[in-house]
Design a binder for these strands. Structure first.
Length: 491
RNA sequence: CGGGGUGUAGCGUAGCCCGGUUAGCGCGCCUGCUUUGGGAGCAGGAGGUCGCAAGUUCGAAUCUUGCCACCCCGACCA
């Protein structure tokens, strides 16, 4: 085990922070609540972006960019929206600094107060719908399928690396449609893309479902989400897709002339995932040896560590290692050859283990002589020696196997930590002992959900799409219920 | 914003209660030699506004007051 490193058992949140820091993903910044995403962490985000961006484009979406600043008055156009975000908005009030009268540094110039304050976007629905009004006159202008990659700011009281920071990176899709049906279809289409991405790229199984009224996006008619389970038994909302109805169209007066000649309000969706996904990735797969990355999102899929005693051996081994690297690259594998002489092999082993590189290849004089290479997989920590001329093919299929294995391991964990509760007593026991997802009946009221939250800190993560429609009694009030919902304590 | 805690080299810390050498140690860093199949060893070396500001004192990392930052627990959080 790594020195100076916490275990999940010992201290889960310290373990998480240690991974973020020691794997070089991110670090705290000079600004409270904001983090610096370091090159290795950003490389993972770029791989996520690349995969998602392709999925968006493949479904007809285009990227665009809207301003960081939003006129304050825009927020009050939609009542629920302003209600939901008002408490966490950063506001720009001035546009100029001046030298301090006492000569020490600079101060805000009070003569440079903005006529209307600007809110730093916590999300962009308002400015986008204000813009869409200009873009839409006729049904021929629809649909508009736009996505934006951007940073947003939500002034959070308590922050955690990746999971909740004051500023974070995300994508937000904003679509406009002529019909309700089409908008609803889009809402589900994008949720399916998120679920596909989570399961096939991140190797994290997710539940799809509706948010309850309490958890719904401010301004949405319906919010659907994907929910993942972390190793400590807490749930994490990994992505959301909103059917906005005509709420924003009405708030920003966006109408179109239909084929029939009538003037109608436009139907809308919005959907997003953020750098929070990196947090999900860490907590879903990593172990007490450090980060574990699924091959599809690993910036380096295989690392080659040469082993040698002197200059002659170094040349011999590294020449072979370069051949090996080329071989792997020809199989489409992202390979790094670490031929630095400044660190010992043992040090490198630990380093790459900590950084979650899926496959490690060690090659020394013995291997050169025997035509072999040692292959170690990060997920199971198993090692084996294989023929070096088979390495390209072998590592390729090993990466596929690791990707699949991580998903299956996460799925098995979720299944082992999903329970049903039919009484308040069992509900509480499950929460205290195991956490995880709890399937329980709920009377459908916001009041009951609120009370459950106050008493147990558990919330309704989602009302699952695939939940069977068995009827039962609310676990809290005993009132009739038509379907089990998913409860959990959540990030 | 409430309750508690912590600020000493890049990181982790001792010293503080009870003021008094040149602020000590580990990791890391630099140089050299020996090493290299799971975090190397030895020798030498560099690196400090003791969070910031004021005060008490002959003298402050140490005592007093104020401020700032961070951490934990609450509150808050689609």
């Amino acid at each position: 085990m790594a020195k100076d490193f916490s275990t999940r058992e010992d201290n889960y949140s310290k373990w998480y922070n240690d991974i973020v820091q020691r794997a070089g993903l991110a670090e705290a910044s000079a600004v409270r609540g904001c983090m610096v995403i370091k090159p290795y962490g950003y490389a993972i985000w770029e791989k996520m972006q690349a995969a998602l961006d392709k999925m968006f484009k493949d479904t007809g979406h285009s990227n665009a960019y809207f301003p960081l600043f939003i006129p304050k008055s825009f927020f009050s156009r939609e009542a629920d929206h302003v209600e939901g975000f008002a408490k966490e908005c950063a506001v720009v009030t001035h546009y100029r600094l001046k030298n301090a009268p006492d000569g020490k540094g600079v101060v805000v110039d009070n003569d440079a107060r903005l006529e209307e304050e600007l809110v730093i976007r916590p999300t962009s629905e308002t400015i986008i719908w204000d813009t869409y009004r200009q873009w839409i006159q006729s049904y021929r202008d629809l649909p508009i399928l736009v996505n934006q990659w951007a940073n947003v700011v939500r002034w959070e009281m308590r922050t955690r690396m990746f999971l909740r920071t004051a500023e974070f990176l995300w994508q937000e899709g904003h679509t406009a449609h002529a019909t309700k049906e089409e908008a609803i279809e889009e809402t589900y289409r994008m949720l399916d893309i998120y679920a596909d991405f989570a399961e096939n790229h991140m190797a994290i199984p997710v539940l799809k479902g509706f948010k309850s009224e309490n958890e719904r996006f401010a301004g949405a008619v319906d919010t659907v989400c994907i929910e993942a389970l972390m190793q400590d038994g807490k749930a994490l909302q990994a992505g959301t897709s909103h059917f906005l109805g005509q709420n924003f169209a009405k708030a920003f007066d966006v109408k179109f002339a239909s084929k029939e000649g009538s003037l109608e309000y436009v139907w809308a969706t919005s959907w997003g995932v953020s750098t929070r996904l990196a947090g999900a990735l860490i907590m879903a797969h990593s172990d007490d040896h450090g980060l574990v990355l699924p091959p599809k999102l690993a910036p380096v899929q295989a690392v080659i560590v040469p082993i040698y005693k002197n200059g002659d051996e170094y040349d011999l081994v590294c020449n072979k290692a370069r051949e090996l690297k080329e071989n792997l690259e020809n199989h489409g594998i992202l390979v790094k050859l670490d031929d630095r002489d400044t660190h010992k092999p043992g040090w490198k082993f630990n380093e790459y283990e900590f950084k979650g590189v899926p496959v490690r290849l060690a090659i020394g004089p013995r291997d050169v002589k025997n035509g072999t290479v040692e292959v170690a997989r990060r997920d199971t920590l198993q090692k084996e020696v294989i023929a070096i001329d088979q390495a390209g093919k072998a590592v390729g299929s090993l990466l596929t196997e690791i990707q699949k294995g991580l998903y299956e391991r996460a799925l098995a964990f979720r299944e082992a930590n999903t329970h049903t509760a039919d009484s308040w007593e069992v509900f509480n026991q499950l929460l205290d002992k195991k956490g995880g997802f709890i399937l329980a009946h709920w009377d459908g009221t916001a009041e009951t959900e609120q009370k459950i939250k106050e008493e147990t800190k558990a919330t309704i993560r989602c009302i699952p799409f695939d939940g069977n429609k068995e009827s039962g009694k609310c676990v809290y009030t005993g009132k009739p219920s038509g379907q089990r919902v998913v409860f959990a304590r959540a990030y």
